[in-house]
Simulated assay, not measured.
Amino acid sequence: MSEPKSSVHPVDFIWSEVVRDAEAAIRAEPLLGGVFHNAVLHHGSLEAALAYRFADKLATREMNQQLLREIADGAYAASPALGQAARADMVAVFERDPACHRLLQPLMYFKGFQAVQAYRVGHWLLEQGRRDLAFFVQMRVSEVFGVDIHPGARIGQGIMIDHAHSIVIGETAVVGDNVSMLHSVTLGGTGKEEEDRHPKIADGVLIGAGAKVLGNIRVGHCSRIAAGSVVLEEVPPMKTVAGVPARIVGEAGCSQPSVMMDQLLGVRGSEPR
């Protein structure tokens, strides 16, 4: 069951801000009062709210909301790292997405954030040996959000997936911390290999819309992959690659491409807010 609101820990600034956002949203739009109470104000922690959202979004006639809620509550209770990663992801979305003006938005409206948090629960289930439950979560995330992340993939924190339509991340893919990617990105294999066959994305990488990174190759830290590129070879750190097949076209242009979100080749972006 969810915690009473009175148990909000005073040092959890992110959750406290989400609560304030929800209260302000109700004042601005009273018709959504029930929605925000159910999704935010009824809960005493971000973990409880995430578990509710997970269950509410993924429930089916085969697996009802109560059972999914118990699964997610158990995951968050057993692994504090899940909540830590969720907070880092939420801040990443807020800082990098110009359409995000409140911390409340990723939790309520952004399917990229919600899909990544559901993947994290599925990955935890897989690590516990609960393979079929993990695959059930993967299936429902794909059906509900249009995001297909294998529960075996390893994904860091501070992740932003903007728009998040048609994202595919394969079983042996590794994604580092503070990575940003846009819609229609694929981190896939190149054939029917059964071993380590998917890309390794280092910290701070920016992957543009529609880019395909294929095979067991490494994309170096703080590099940029231009929209629509097909990457088949290793990308050195702090470089920009573009084209089909992708080739190095210059430097990354800044020290933190995934934060700057500058996708214009040869043009340096503005400082992050």
Rank of each mutant, 00 (worst) to 15 (best):
M1W: 01
D12I: 01
S16Q: 15
S16A: 15
S16H: 10
V18I: 15
A24C: 12
A25C: 08
R27F: 07
R27P: 00
L32W: 03
G33Y: 04
H37M: 11
A39R: 14
V40K: 11
H43Q: 04
L46W: 04
A49T: 06
M63Q: 13
Q66C: 01
L67C: 06
L67G: 04
R69H: 07
R69F: 08
A75G: 03
A78L: 07
G83S: 02
R87V: 06
R87F: 07
A88V: 06
A92H: 10
V93G: 10
F94T: 02
E95K: 09
R96I: 02
L104W: 10
Q105W: 08
Q105P: 06
Y109G: 11
Y109N: 14
G112T: 03
F113V: 09
Y119F: 13
R120H: 07
R120S: 09
L126W: 05
G129F: 09
R130Y: 02
R131Q: 06
D132A: 04
S142N: 15
V147R: 09
I159C: 00
M160W: 00
H163M: 00
H163I: 02
H163R: 10
H163C: 00
H165N: 12
S166Y: 08
I169K: 13
T172F: 03
V175G: 07
D177S: 07
S180F: 12
M181G: 03
L182D: 03
H183K: 02
S184L: 08
L187V: 06
T190F: 01
G191H: 04
K192E: 12
E195L: 15
D196W: 05
H198R: 07
P199L: 11
D203L: 13
I207D: 08
G208K: 01
A209E: 08
A211N: 05
G215M: 00
H221W: 10
C222Y: 15
V231G: 02
E233T: 09
E234L: 06
P236T: 10
M238Q: 15
K239R: 15
K239C: 14
T240C: 05
V241I: 01
G243K: 09
G243T: 05
A246C: 04
G250M: 13
G250P: 14
A252L: 14
S255A: 15
P257F: 02
P257C: 06
M260F: 14
Q263E: 11
L265I: 15
G266Q: 11
G269H: 02
R273F: 09
